[in-house]
């Protein structure tokens, strides 16, 4: 039996020597969480949350690689791959454009740009929100095995939707070119609008990801809300159709966030009030997300 201790003794001695050697030279090793320190009496949650965020953003390449794999694996073996999205969106625009321009007594040429931009931007928002509900649940295996920042999982969800959107957004250019509805120089604001949308997308991926991991019914509720929002938000119809009550739309965050992208693309721009509404909503969204993240970050591993 003495063999046990015989094996240990040299092993330990050797490790001391090797370890000393290692300390002098740099190690090619960086783990996600190199050091662990927890004190339940003094949890320093804000500190941890900020570390998580900064580490996750610095490692954006990981999130991007995972998002790319998600898309690639989803369309594995398919001939058109993600371009099926482009095709199906194109077909939907053609079909709905012809139908609704007739229903709303507008010419296809004047209605199609509005419909295309609206639908594509809306689809982007709707897909992000739906995907956000499973951003953490779908990463369960990783969360329980690898100490990664949670930010990585939320960013992965955002990047996944950016890739998807990149297959649809060019259709807008095609439609605008075909119908000759060029938006003018104000179009650069659409980039700002997309950036604001991106910030909201990240906040949603983190907040809804957490909430839906804890309350499993919430995902279903969010899906129903998105369906309702599609009809309540001026996507197929013009905001002006509401007449005097159009101001109510300022309280529809889907409208304002969509409008700051859509307006500049259509050349009509978005009113100052819409920008204020969108930015206010963004600040609220980020604030609530940050509060939740700070308070409940430590519980996520137990929820998924």
């Amino acid at each position: 039996m003495s063999m046990g201790s015989e094996t240990i003794a040299p092993a330990v001695a050797q490790s001391e020597g090797v370890a000393a050697g290692h300390d002098s030279g740099p190690r090619v090793f960086h783990d996600a969480v190199p050091r662990v320190f927890h004190d339940a009496a003094d949890p320093r949650r804000a500190n941890r949350a900020l570390t998580d965020l900064s580490l996750g953003f610095r490692r954006w390449r990981l999130a991007a690689a995972l998002a790319w794999l998600d898309i690639r694996n989803r369309y594995r073996g398919s001939v058109l791959g993600p371009f099926w999205l482009t095709l199906s969106t194109g077909l939907m625009l053609a079909g709905l454009g012809i139908l609704y321009s007739a229903l709303l007594h507008q010419t296809l040429r004047s209605y199609l740009p509005f419909l295309s931009v609206s639908l594509i931007v809306w689809n982007m928002i709707s897909q992000i929100v739906t995907d956000a509900t499973t951003s953490l649940i779908s990463a369960e295996g990783m969360i329980r095995q690898l100490p990664l920042p949670y930010t990585t999982h939320a960013l992965r969800c955002v990047f996944r939707n950016v890739i998807t959107a990149a297959h649809n957004l060019p259709l807008i250019v095609v439609v605008l070119a075909v119908t000759g509805a060029f938006p003018g120089p104000g179009v650069v604001l659409a980039v700002v609008g997309l950036a604001v949308l991106g910030i909201n997308a990240f906040a949603a991926a983190l907040l809804l990801g957490m909430l839906c991991a804890r309350f499993r019914d919430l995902g279903q509720i969010v899906n129903s809300v998105m369906q309702l929002a599609f009809f309540m938000t001026p996507i197929l119809w013009q905001p002006s159709s509401l007449g005097r009550r159009a101001w109510l739309l300022l309280f529809d965050p889907f409208y304002s966030v969509m409008q700051i992208v859509r307006g500049p693309l259509l050349g009509t721009g978005a009113s100052t009030l819409v920008w204020v509404s969108a930015l206010t909503f963004t600040v609220l969204m980020c604030g609530v997300t940050y509060g939740f993240f700070v308070r409940f970050r430590g519980r996520i591993a137990f929820w998924v």
Binding site: R27, F29, H30, D31, V33, P34, R35, V36, F37, H38, D39, A40, A41, P43, G141, M142, I143, R144, Q145, L146, P147, G298, R299, A301, F302
Partner: peptide, 27 residues
């Protein structure tokens, strides 16, 4: 110890770079 679960009570200090072979096929 790997930093995946946070304790509800008590104190934990793990000083040093951690390598975990908890599930080699993870990821």
């Amino acid at each position: 110890l790997a930093g995946i679960y946070e304790p509800v009570a008590g104190r934990l200090e793990v000083d040093g770079q951690i390598g975990s072979l908890i599930d080699p096929s993870a990821g």
